[in-house]
Design a binder for these strands. Structure first.
Lengths: 169, 169
DNA sequence: GGCGGCTTCTTGAAATTTGAACAAGCGACG
DNA sequence: CGTCGCTTGTTCAAATTTCAAGAAGCCGCC
């Protein structure tokens, strides 16, 4: 029954200010994610994550990415990606293609229809992001937000090789 | 086929910096949410949202809240809450109680077992939040984050009465 | 009283996500 | 060559979430 680090020791609770910040964070992030999810579901017929998959493919070299790469880029499991691509395939927005170099591999390829969906819906999505976030923040706040988020992400990054194998150092 | 506001006009794309901030935001928030979800699933046997429900109840006057209130506090739909409470009830952590004043109403009540689960798992959760977020940010950054998140939340708040009925002003 | 509109909460089915298990291919190494 | 360990992607079942109804009570008002 081992919890997180030193959970048995006297816990350092959050201070009042920290608690305030944390609640604001949870509040805002869930509201924003819900907002964008509904916006995209309404205007593009897919959840935010799926939209992110299409964007990822659109930016990739030949509008294609190996499943694993795409999964990492979107920070979702391969399993989840399999299901998602199956759904997007049914929509005609993505197509699967075998990888010649590795017979296990599959490419997810953005179809022309997929490109078209993005072309049609991206402006509305950008507008939503802008209205919810950037239009409300000062340049300094935008900069601060970027820095903060980078720090947080860095601390949670899927560990690099050997990072958790200290006996290898 | 009406998208978001003025999506037909020449879209104002995100600048390079904005895009950078936005990606950092998405990256960090999904990593953090996944991290906490896994942490709580592992140590408390429930997802982050469910944990939030227990916390909400724990802080309420008699460890109880009407379903609608709890749903609003957690920012989820009543439907979702119904299912969630059913699950937590099966765990023995929450119990339903009729509302005497309104026969339609139900209270969700945190049981002693529920309290115990929180007592046992809260320290680990706080530690995780601290390690992922507060331990990495300067006091100024924490303050900035709080302000930013408040602004964002304010802009997405479920609209108050008449907010979208300008002809009423 | 009782009707109409609203609120409260639940339900059931479909969609999505999770987690474990699996088939198949890769690749190094004896 | 073989086979062991690892990677790739999928699949299944269970859990969770969404969405569209729907049952029941409340409330104001005639």
């Amino acid at each position: 029954m081992n919890n997180a680090p030193d959970s048995a020791a006297a816990p350092r609770w959050l201070t009042a200010e920290e608690q305030h910040v944390w609640r604001a964070y949870l509040h805002a992030t869930t509201l924003l994610e819900d907002h964008l999810d509904r916006q995209l579901q309404r205007d593009a017929g897919m959840p935010h994550v799926y939209y992110g998959l299409l964007v990822g493919l659109a930016e990739a070299p030949r509008r294609r990415l190996r499943m694993t790469e795409l999964a990492m880029q979107a920070k979702i499991t391969r399993s989840r990606l399999s299901h998602a691509i199956a759904r997007l395939e049914k929509n005609g927005w993505v197509r699967r293609e075998d990888c010649p170099a590795d017979k296990r591999g599959q490419f997810a390829v953005l179809t022309d229809e997929g490109v078209e969906v993005l072309r049609r819906t991206a402006p509305g999505h950008v507008a939503a992001v802008r209205q919810a976030l950037f239009d409300r923040l000062s340049p300094e706040q935008q900069k601060a937000l970027g820095e903060i988020m980078e720090i947080v992400a860095e601390g949670l990054q899927p560990k690099e090789a050997g990072a958790d194998l200290p006996w290898l150092r």
